[in-house]
Every structure is written in C-alpha cells, then in structure tokens.
Design a protein around this nucleic acid. Structure first.
Length: 447
DNA sequence: TTATATT
C-alpha cells in the first residue's frame, strides 16, 4: 500500500517510445512504486509524453523529485525530465495577488520584497496594453505556508511611492472566482440586477425620457415596414431586447404584467413603497386613473412634478424631455435631444470592457451620484450619449459604500460633450449632478 | 470631490 500522505508526481518530457515497463526501472531506484501511468490520448491511444507516478512512500517521491527534476534529459528529448507534484495534488493556495504597488516597480523589485518568505516560482506585474504597470502583480510561492507568511508580514506593511494606500497582499482569485466575477460584471452591464431602476425608474424624468425613446423605436419597428427607418429599427430589435431587461425600459415594455417582475423585486402597490417624499427623494405621481398597474407608475424628477398622463408616442421627443431640470435655460434643449438621435447608432456595449480609460476628452468625472448608484446604473444613465466603454462608481474599500462619484468613458469626445451638455446639472432628488471632463493625471500640480 | 487593479 501507499502512505496516507503520498504525493502523486507528474513526469514530463518522456520519449514517446517508452512505456510503463521501460520507465519503471528508472523510478524504482528511489523507492517502491505504487502506480505508474503513461498518459494516453483518450481517443487515439497516442502516448502523450508524460506520466503520473505515485510511490508508496512520500519520501520516495521527494527523493525522485530532487534527483530527477530538470536534472537529466531522456534520449531523444531536448528538454530535461520534469518530476513534480501533479496539479491535482493541489498544494493549497500559494499564489498571491499583490496590489497597491508603485507603478514604477519592476518584477525584480517585487521579487526582492517577497523573497524573504520563500521560494518564488513566478512573479508577474500586471501591465496594460501599453506596457504600463497596473500597480499590481501575481507572486507564486512553492507552498501555501510561504504565501501565508508573506501575507502576514507584508500586507498593509508599507505604502509604495505613488500608491494611494498601503500594500495589499492576498491570495489570488481562483479560476472559479474569476469566472464568477466576470459573469457578475456582465450581468451588471446588462442591468439584470437592478431593483432600483426596475421599480422606481431611479432618475424620474430621465427614465421617462429613455422609456419614451424606446417606445418610439418600438413603434417604428412594429409599424408598416415600408420605409428605411422602420427597417433599421427592425434590425435593432435584438439589441432592443437587451435593453428591455435593462430595467430602464422594463415597465413600459411589459404592459400590465406584474407577474414578469424579476425575483426579489417587490410588486407591492406604490403607496406602500414610497413615502410622499419618496424613499430616494423622488416624489411619486398622483395615482393613474387609466388602469395601469401601480408598479408601472412613473416617478418624477425631484421637486418638479411631471404631469400625470399615459405614455404616448404621439410626440415622444417633446414629451420625453419635458421633465428634465437643468441649470441652463432653453439652450439646454438641443443638447437634450441629442441622446435620442444618437441612441439609434448605439452598438450595444455589452461586450466585456477591457479598457478603463478612453482617449483624452472622452473621460468624464461625475459627482453627486445617488448613494445607491452602482456601475450598472451609471452606465445606463450615460448609454444614450454614445458608446460607454467604462462606467465606474468609486466605492469605499472598507465599507463598500459608494462615494457618490464616478467615471464614465466614451470612445469619442463628441459623445462625452453631449453627455456633459445634457447631464451636467441634471437633478436627482435634492442633488444636481456635476458632469465634467476627468482631470488629467498630471494636472493641478502646485508647481 | 478625479481610478483598489485579478495572468
């Protein structure tokens, strides 16, 4: 039998003409073999040039590893033999994520920092496409214990030059965690988990503006397809369907259902949800008298009540923006119309974002966001102005609470300007948004 | 009140 703590070894760089019987003598030198299996292709039966090897004794495995691994090259091979614990042995987490590094720190710098705690198998600085450090790295040790020792000693131990907070040292995400995080991110971009916007239409008149816009598009698409516009609209139907789940347009597009409300979203009548002032500072409209379910009631934009009336596509443009509140006077109106025309050529930005920042002049800083706005809500708010390549709300890392400001990046400056024109000063509850170009990193230096 | 990032 084999030891309870036996190690399964992976053996690589084996000539394909050697079978188990040929290999056995070579490895028996270090102890009694419990199991030796050459890996074969499951369909063709072809020798894969590697094997799994388990000794009866753990000690035999360790001896074989130190004597053979990278130590000799088998006939016909041009790389030395590999003898090391199989991946399946899972020696526990030993890979670390390191954050809050200085952007100028090299792999060598990081190695020097982590060397005292163990054997480093791998050290990689994460870099953007331009090669610039992202201020974080992966460091892999030979064992879990070494990795843990590094965490204990280094996490929070110092603040690197140029970093905004002390060094972060933690176990890296597993593949599963990474996949989950990606999925969650995508779901957020599709607006699937957006109770606020589904129930209330978080930003009142603005929401209505978008809903009207969508309604107009739908009407065009459903009408007689004899004109080019309708054809275009029809071509956008699939994209529209994506929008339909986005919460912003869920209410008008699921007429009088009430049963299609996503799980976890209350369908209780409005008065039980919203106080006269509204939970979020929004005032509810007077009850509708046309038989619409309460859950589809439209909310107004703060102080100024929007006239209660059924949605109509008769004059969607004018009606859509009637409730917008701006610092600017009538001059704001042309800008307010821009989103509607631009919405047509929008490519659904549901492809995962790899880019955080857009070109110069395309990145906006937004302040006075509602506390409950997340990345998805921020993105939805700015979608009508163009291709949003990134929308990020700054959250406090300790409390996970929004700091009520964020960043939105477009792929072109015109969209960014349109967004500023339409959304700067936009009133939400008691606050008005501040929307301006993001300050360049090197600006505002006193000297 | 101007980016805490995951090969």
């Amino acid at each position: 039998m084999k030891d309870h703590d036996a190690i399964k070894l992976f053996v690589g760089q084996i000539p394909r003409n050697l079978e188990e019987s040929d290999l056995k003598p070579l490895f028996e030198e270090f102890g009694k073999i419990y199991e030796l299996t050459v890996l074969k292709d499951r369909f063709t039966g072809m020798h894969k040039g590697c094997a799994f090897l388990t000794y009866c004794a753990r000690d035999s495995a360790l001896k074989a590893q130190s004597a053979l691994h990278e130590q000799k090259t088998l006939p016909g091979m041009n790389r030395p033999i590999q003898v090391k614990p199989a991946d399946s042995e899972g020696r526990g987490d030993r890979k670390l994520f390191v954050g809050m590094l200085g952007k100028q720190q090299s792999e060598d710098d990081v190695r020097r920092l982590f060397e005292p705690f163990g054997q480093i198998e791998e050290c990689t600085i994460l870099r953007g496409p331009d090669g610039a450090s992202k201020g974080c790295a992966f460091v892999k040790y030979g064992s879990h214990a070494e990795a843990q020792a590094a965490i204990n000693s280094l996490h929070g131990s110092q603040t690197m030059p140029g970093a905004s907070s002390s060094l972060v040292v933690k176990f890296a995400d597993t593949d599963k965690e990474r996949t989950l995080r990606r999925m969650h991110q995508m779901a957020g971009q599709l607006g699937i988990f957006n109770p606020m916007t589904i129930q209330f239409g978080a930003y009142g008149a603005y929401t209505q503006a978008i809903m009207q816009q969508q309604a107009a598009l739908m009407a065009a698409a459903q009408g007689t397809c004899l004109n080019p516009m309708a054809a275009i609209a029809a071509a956008q139907m699939q994209q529209m369907a994506a929008f339909n789940v986005s919460g912003l347009v869920a209410a008008p597009m699921t007429p009088s259902s009430g049963t299609s409300t996503p799980p976890g979203i209350s369908t209780a009548p409005v008065p039980s949800i919203a106080t006269p002032i509204g939970v979020n500072g929004f005032s509810p409209l007077p009850p509708q008298t046309n038989g619409q379910p309460a859950s589809e009631t439209i909310y107004t934009n703060g102080i100024h009540p929007y006239p209660a009336q059924s949605p109509t596509v008769a004059d969607p443009l004018q009606q859509a923006y009637a409730g917008m509140q701006h610092y600017a006077g009538p001059a704001a109106y042309p800008a307010a119309y821009a989103p509607i025309s631009q919405a047509f050529h929008q490519q659904a930005p549901i492809i995962p974002q790899q880019q955080r920042e857009g070109p110069e002049g395309c990145n906006l800083f937004i302040y006075h966001l509602p506390q409950e706005f997340g990345d998805a809500e921020l993105m939805q708010m700015f979608l009508p102005f163009g291709n949003v390549i990134s929308a990020k709300v700054f959250v406090d890392r300790a409390t996970n609470q929004s700091k009520c400001f964020g960043f939105v990046s477009f792929d072109n400056p015109t969209s960014a300007q349109a967004a500023i024109q339409a959304m700067n000063g936009f009133q939400i509850g008691m606050k008005r948004l501040k929307v301006q170009l993001k300050r360049p990193k090197d600006a505002n230096r006193p000297y």
